[in-house]
Simulated scan of single mutants.
Amino acid sequence: MASEFTEDVARGVLAEACAATGLNAGGAELLRLGSNAVFRLASAPVIVRIAQDPSAAEEMKRGAAVARWLASEDYPATRLVPGLAQPAVVGGRVVTYWESAQDRVEYVRLDELGDLLKRLHWLDEPESLGLSYYDPFSRVAGGLAALTEVSEDEREFLEQRAARLQKDLARVDFVLPFGAIHGDANVGNAIRHRDGHAILIDLDSFALGHREWDLVLTSLYYERFGWHTKAEYESFVYHYGFELRNWPGYEVLADIRELMMTLWLGTRTSGDPRLVGEFRRRLDALCTDGSRRDWQPF
C-alpha cells in the first residue's frame, strides 16, 4: 500500500473524512506524508491524521486511548477533538482528529524533551489501556518482509544483522524502571503549543517497556548523526537525569534503532530519488560500518 499512498489519495480520504464530521477540507496544509498523512485544516484548529496502513485500527485506537489517559493526568500532550467517535474508518483508511496545537511547525528544545519524558515516566499507566510490550523486532521483521529494492546479498546481511542484534538484546541488563513508554520519543515528536509550553505528539507507538528505549534516539541523533549539538544534548541529559551513553546496553539499542530507521525508509522510497538515495546511503553505512554523519532526517 505504500506506493499507493500519495498526497492525492490522502486528500481524497481527507475530503470524505471532513464531510462526514462537518469539517471543511478546503485549503488544508499537508504537514507530513509518511506512516501517516498529517493535515492541518485551514477552516478550524484541527489536525487530521490518516494512517497509511489500512490495518492500523488497533494502533490508532490505542493512540486515542493514550491521549484520553494523558488528558486525565493533565499531562502536556496532543489532545483529541472532543465529540467525535475515534478512530474512524474512511475510504478504507483509519482517521483520527486532533486539536491543532500550533499555527506553524516549531519543535521544542532538548531540555524540554527531557522534562516531558521524565514526567511521562513517573506516571502509572492504567491496565485498561491494554498496552502491548515494546517489541522492536516485530517492526524489524515487518520492514524486512516489505523490502523490495535490495539484492539477495543485502537482504541476507540485514537478516543476519537483525538476528545478531536480537541475541545481543537478550543479554542486555536494563537499569531504568519498566512501564509506559512513548516508543518513538525524539525531538520530532515534541512540539511547542501556541501558548508556549511543550507537548508530546504521535502517541500511536505507546507501549510497555524499559525507559531506555525513550532515550536512545536522542543519544543516537547526537552521538552518531550529529543532529544535536553537545550543549543541546547535555541539557537533555541534565533535565532527564540519566546519561544513556554511559550504560553498557546503549550500543545495542542504538544499533537496533539504526536498523529500524533504515528499514522504515527502505519500505517508503516509492521511486522518490531523495528517499532512494538516503536509503542506499544508510544501507552502505551499515554494510561497511561507515560514518553516519551524512545521514539525513526524514
Score class of each variant (00 low, 15 high):
K167C: 08
L176A: 01
D184H: 10
G266I: 03
S138P: 00
V9P: 00
M60D: 04
R161A: 04
E58T: 14
A2H: 15
V95D: 10
I47N: 06
I50L: 13
D103K: 14
E4L: 15
R93T: 04
N189V: 04
H228A: 09
R32C: 04
E4M: 09
L144H: 02
W98D: 10
N24C: 12
P177I: 03
G114R: 05
F174C: 13
G27H: 09
A37C: 09
F174R: 10
P136Y: 12
E99M: 13
R155M: 08
I181R: 06
C287G: 05
T96Q: 05
A25L: 07
W69E: 03
E258H: 11
L259Y: 06
E234R: 13
Q296M: 12
E223M: 08
S35G: 14
A162K: 07
V276P: 00
W227Q: 01
P82Y: 07
D8M: 09
P273G: 05
P126S: 08
P76W: 11
S219Y: 01
L203Q: 04
E4D: 14
F5T: 00
V9S: 07
T96P: 06
R139P: 00
S128F: 03
G183Q: 02
L147N: 12
Y221D: 15
E58Y: 06
M60H: 04
E258C: 11
P82L: 10
A64T: 14
E212L: 01
A88L: 13
L263W: 03
P248A: 03
E59C: 06
A51Q: 08
R62D: 02
L203C: 02
M261I: 09
L116K: 04
G63D: 05
R292V: 08
A231Q: 13
D272S: 12
W122E: 15
T267L: 00
P45G: 08
R119V: 04
S219W: 04
H197K: 13
D184C: 07
A51L: 05
R282V: 01
D53I: 02
N36F: 02
T262I: 00
L169S: 08
E125K: 09
G22H: 07
P177F: 00
